[in-house]
């Protein structure tokens, strides 16, 4: 068939303007200003604190969502129960609506502005302007990724091997560890990388609940925003954005590797 070269030119031009130009500019700026200026911006106390807080939040949100995601995938794949469609839908809500709206929703549900907020506050739980709120918001917006990457693998692999293990006397935990987990591990890891990327980069939901208190409730994305918006420190904003961009690129490369591993794995099974 004749190759539509005209279309190729149009597509490359569009992607060039919309995607390659901003990304290329990011890389160009990254290297044009020199390494020492970059280092001085990213080692500012505020920036370091923000990065540490981002990592701490991810250290809570990622394991939590991984356990819930794998658990839900096992339940959805192996059992049909009343209401499983509703639960399945609920997983997608946080990524289908605006992160800003998720932030407002969490504030209205759990802070003093909401109905039970003052009671929760007496129990020592406060969501607005606190690290608790940041963790909650980040966990919410990174909810579905592990489930969505694990469920298709589980559905495809079937239950033959698990049943064989059960008839040989293996308990549920042992079956999971030796039979199910090796099958789904690349899928789970794929979801974990997506969750990690989302938790480190989340801005909209966190900025609403955090109150943007410098040195206290600033994650790295909020520090980047604040440097530009409040302190007119464009260089600080740009250099710290580079850290997040580098994390995103590493995540993309890892995801690419995981996709090919997964493909090979399926090839082995077939």
């Amino acid at each position: 068939m004749k190759r539509p070269t005209g279309l190729r030119v149009v597509v490359l031009a569009y992607l060039g303007v919309i995607v390659a130009l901003p990304v290329g500019y990011l890389i160009y700026r990254a290297f044009s200003k020199g390494f020492s200026s970059f280092m001085s911006q990213v080692t500012q106390p505020g920036a370091v604190h923000a990065l540490v807080l981002s990592l701490e939040v991810a250290a809570i949100a990622v394991p939590l969502n991984t356990i819930v995601g794998v658990g839900a995938a096992l339940l959805f794949a192996r059992h049909r129960f009343w209401g499983h469609r509703v639960l399945d839908l609920c997983f997608d809500i946080p990524v289908a609506v605006s992160p800003v709206i998720i932030g407002v929703a969490l504030v209205l549900a759990y802070s003093k502005i909401g109905w039970w907020g003052s009671w929760l506050a007496t129990q020592g739980i406060s969501v607005l302007f606190s690290v608790t709120g940041i963790v909650l918001a980040t966990t919410a917006v990174s909810l579905p990724y592990v489930l969505r990457s694990t469920l298709p693998v589980l559905l495809e692999s079937g239950t033959d091997q698990e049943e064989a293990a059960r008839t040989l006397g293996s308990g549920p935990l042992r079956t999971f560890w030796y039979i199910t987990l090796p099958v789904i591990r690349w899928g789970v890891l794929y979801g974990v990388v997506l969750t990690l990327a989302r938790t480190l980069g989340e801005f909209g939901a966190v900025v609403v609940v955090s109150g943007n208190i410098s040195g206290l409730t600033q994650t790295l994305p909020i520090y980047i925003y604040d440097s530009w918006d409040q302190n007119y420190n464009a260089q600080a904003s740009f250099d710290n954005a580079l850290i997040l961009a580098a994390i995103a690129v590493v995540a993309l490369v890892v995801l690419g590797i995981l996709r090919s591993k997964e493909r090979n794995h399926r090839g082995d099974l077939a």
Partner: peptide
């Protein structure tokens, strides 16, 4: 692979760029 970059890039990074 390039197509996924806007998805992986944190939105605030895109905003700054």
């Amino acid at each position: 692979g390039f197509i996924d970059l806007p998805f992986a890039l944190p939105t605030i990074v895109a905003g700054v760029v």
